[in-house]
Write a protein that binds this DNA or RNA. Sequence first.
DNA 1: CCCTGAAATGACATATACGTAATATTACGG
DNA 2: CCGTAATATTACGTATATGTCATTTCAGGG
Lengths: 77, 77
Amino acid sequence: MTQIRDPQLLRQVAKRIKKLRAENQVTQDMLFHKTNIHIGRVESGKINISISTLNSICNYFDISLSEFFFELEEEKM
Amino acid sequence: MTQIRDPQLLRQVAKRIKKLRAENQVTQDMLFHKTNIHIGRVESGKINISISTLNSICNYFDISLSEFFFELEEEKM
DNA sequence: CCCTGAAATGACATATACGTAATATTACGG
DNA sequence: CCGTAATATTACGTATATGTCATTTCAGGG
């Protein structure tokens, strides 16, 4: 009934994470071994991840959730 | 295997939303009729909501996701 | 006391995130 | 061209968020 996923938001989140990985030269596999998160699925933009999962990702990159979204909003990705 | 939910984060999110509702004098039912989200469950702190759902909540209160988390982090709720 | 609105809690079905694994595709260095 | 690393994509089972509804608890006003 209600729209569960927000495609635009998911694309923005995917892009933000890709950028974080690129900046930190982290492969999907490296991130997976530390967090057990299959980031490829998230980066596909088709997965509506939970806040706990996103928090784990932010912890890995040593940024806060507010920082994650602040830059996402700034860039209007 | 991996811990999916982050109980502390979920409690913080719950508290942040309760506060938003109180500040704006919004009942659970009012929010439900606009967003179709049963916020009571979220405020119980047992639900690991998705980013799209949280985004809908933020939209309702007319704040950004970064603002949502910024205050959450400030208050160390 | 009641009554009412609000919140909290529970149950159940469905959709989907997540855990796990495999395969395919792409990009690059040799 | 080949081999390798990285990414992208797919599939499947399980756990759980979400949709829907009902019940219970609670606080305040009459």
